[in-house]
């Protein structure tokens, strides 16, 4: 029997490709399914939200300007990196969400496969959502979907990994950058996922992950004027109104899904891809 002590992980935030502690210096205990304290997660602050938004804005030009093929490969690379850590994610989901090992394995496999599914959409969605428009005049006219910008997301609270991936992957597929508030009580898988993202050629700032209290952080995300879209999937219906009201001050695109949220084991459909794109239409005269 080895008497070697294991090396435990410090769970921090993921902002601009780095893993800082909260600037506030705060942390909070995260307990697992059996009430044991699993770790002390960083408790992000308003300032961390602002840092994350500014990192996402800075990363937007590069990520939205990358070729769709390139984005597809990066998202597929995330799946590759997760596959290599499959056992670790199963253990993490089991510790955080509880349930059986088989159930945790099903969720992790679905989470990995979701990256593969969305990766494939990256260079196809524009052909589905765009096209040439037969206008009644001597013009060439076409429409293309473009990313809306910085998407603020409240991740599902009950599902620490598949739910999280189901909300960030579609936003990334179409070229948006993301600030996501991880599930308050189950944030650890989100930070382990961040380690995967950091090594999957995803440029720093494209995804920023904040752990902490959603009730404290979401209002700052909702009212931030440099956030273009707000995804309220992880907010209970009764609590969505004030956030959606704050979002209206800068005419944010608010995604407030009902039952068909595209976050479960079923194939998600296109709603999440369509939620955070803008259709751009370009006209040019014909002539010689």
């Amino acid at each position: 029997m080895s008497d070697r002590l294991d090396v435990r992980k410090t769970y921090k935030l993921y902002i601009a490709g780095a893993f800082p502690r909260s600037e506030s210096g705060r942390s909070y205990p995260v307990s697992g399914a059996g009430d044991t304290v699993l770790a002390h997660a960083a408790q992000a602050s308003r300032k961390d939200v602002r840092d994350a938004v500014s990192a996402a804005r800075k990363a937007f030009g590069g990520w939205s300007g990358a070729t769709a093929y390139n984005r597809a490969q990066v998202l597929y690379r995330v799946a590759e990196m997760m596959e290599g850590r499959r056992e670790q994610f199963i253990a993490e989901v089991l510790a955080g969400d509880g349930g059986t090992r088989d159930a945790a394995a099903t969720v992790v496999d679905a989470a990995i496969d979701r990256w593969v599914w969305y990766a494939g959409w990256a260079d196809k969605y524009a052909q589905i959502a765009g096209g040439a428009n037969p206008v009644a005049g001597p013009y060439f006219n076409f429409s293309v979907p473009e990313p809306s910008g910085v998407v603020g997301i409240v991740a599902p609270q009950q599902d620490s990994l598949l739910g999280l991936i189901s909300v960030i992957a579609p936003a990334l597929t179409t070229g948006n950058t993301v600030v996501v508030l991880a599930a308050t009580d189950r944030p650890l898988a989100a930070i382990t996922l961040s380690e995967v993202l950091a090594t999957a050629d995803l440029p720093g700032g494209v995804v920023n992950v904040l752990t902490g209290y959603v009730a404290e952080l979401a209002p700052w995300l909702a009212s931030h004027r440099d956030v273009n879209c707000l995804d309220l999937t992880g907010v209970a219906a009764a609590d969505r109104v004030p956030l959606a009201v704050a979002a209206a001050d800068s005419v944010k695109r608010v995604h407030s899904p009902g039952e068909r949220a595209g976050i479960g084991l079923d194939e998600p459909g296109l709603a999440r891809l369509a939620a955070f794109v803008e259709i751009k239409t370009v006209w040019h005269p014909l002539g010689v």
Partner: peptide, 29 residues
Amino acid sequence: RAGVVWANTFNRFDPTSPFGGYTESGFGR
């Protein structure tokens, strides 16, 4: 960053051509 871009023309409208804005110009087409 605009929903309609007119190149070498301007203010053309057609029922087959989606129209609508980015950011504070609104959403939907």
